[in-house]
């Protein structure tokens, strides 16, 4: 069942810059859709429009058939930086996301989520006392405390080291199996997209458009040693390279020494 429907979405800024044109993406209930593409292809702009932080110039975004006009209680987000409120303790930061819950539910969910993200006993710590990975765990817990139907992820693991990133991938999938939110995530990391997503939307720049949509046929949990995992990565990389082909400088078209940033 389609949970999130983005239809003919466009965004043009006041200075005339067209960031997005005719974006059409559907995500079913519990589906994970990753958005990949080169710099400036409007990935984050798209996520901001879905989050209700910016207004679209054309088209619609709907959740369960209801067209959005701003932020929506069913939508939550994790940003590139943890964006924890430094004056709130870890527990209070998680509880901050549960404003619509009763006080008792909020407290119970905070305790449960602290445990789930591996930070039991950290409730009274300040954000400054946590590592980057721990802060991002808190941000994920804060985003999930209110039982969102749709979770938006804007490159939330990009600033983390590979080991921490892998552990957060596992944590995210673990939480997703329990709560089954629809996830729309932006990433620069092809491997991350293949590990996490059911479908990968490749975007092309100037203006941002959907270039290709690739279903991910790798079973979860992903075994990176399987040939199909590498095959999927190559397919995605190739799609991204094709999406950027028009942007390459003359003389660096297909077959020349273009160094792909995706491999």
């Amino acid at each position: 069942m389609t949970r999130l429907a983005i239809h003919q979405l466009g965004k043009t800024y006041a200075d005339g810059t067209e960031a997005l044109r005719d974006i059409n993406i559907q995500a079913d209930t519990g589906e994970i859709v990753a958005i990949l593409g080169g710099s400036g292809c409007g990935k984050t702009t798209l996520l901001r429009l879905v989050a209700g932080l910016d207004q679209a110039s054309s088209g619609t975004i709907s959740v369960g058939g209801q067209v959005l006009t701003g932020t929506h209680p069913a939508i939550s987000a994790v940003f590139q930086e943890p964006r924890l409120l430094p004056w709130l303790t870890t527990g209070a930061n998680i509880a901050f996301g549960g404003g619509r819950l009763t006080a008792r539910d909020r407290q119970a969910r905070t305790t449960a989520l602290l445990d789930r993200v591996g930070l039991a006993g950290y409730a009274s710590r300040w954000p400054r006392e946590l590592s980057g990975g721990q802060q991002q765990r808190v941000a994920i817990a804060r985003a999930l405390i209110g039982h969102p139907e749709i979770l938006l992820l804007d490159e939330p693991f990009s600033a983390l080291d590979p080991v921490t990133r892998a552990s957060l991938h596992e944590l995210l999938l673990d939480l997703w199996r329990d709560l089954r939110p629809t996830i729309l995530m932006v990433t620069h990391d092809v491997e991350e997209a293949v590990v996490l997503a059911d479908r990968i939307v490749v975007m092309r720049p100037k203006p941002g458009r959907v270039h290709d949509v690739l279903p991910v046929d790798v079973p979860r949990p992903s075994d990176k040693a399987l040939p199909i995992f590498d095959l999927m990565k190559r397919r995605v990389t190739s799609a991204i390279d094709r999406s950027l082909a028009d942007d390459r400088p003359p003389g660096l078209k297909s077959g020349s020494l273009w160094l792909s940033p995706w491999v």
């Binding site: 930086e81 964006r83 901050f96």
Partner: peptide
């Protein structure tokens, strides 16, 4: 601005954003 956006994403009213962020 990013902290204000956190308040908006979590559905805080303008007054709540003023008081809590």
């Amino acid at each position: 601005r990013k902290l204000i956006e956190v308040g908006r994403v979590f559905g805080l009213s303008v007054m709540s954003i003023a008081l809590r962020i």
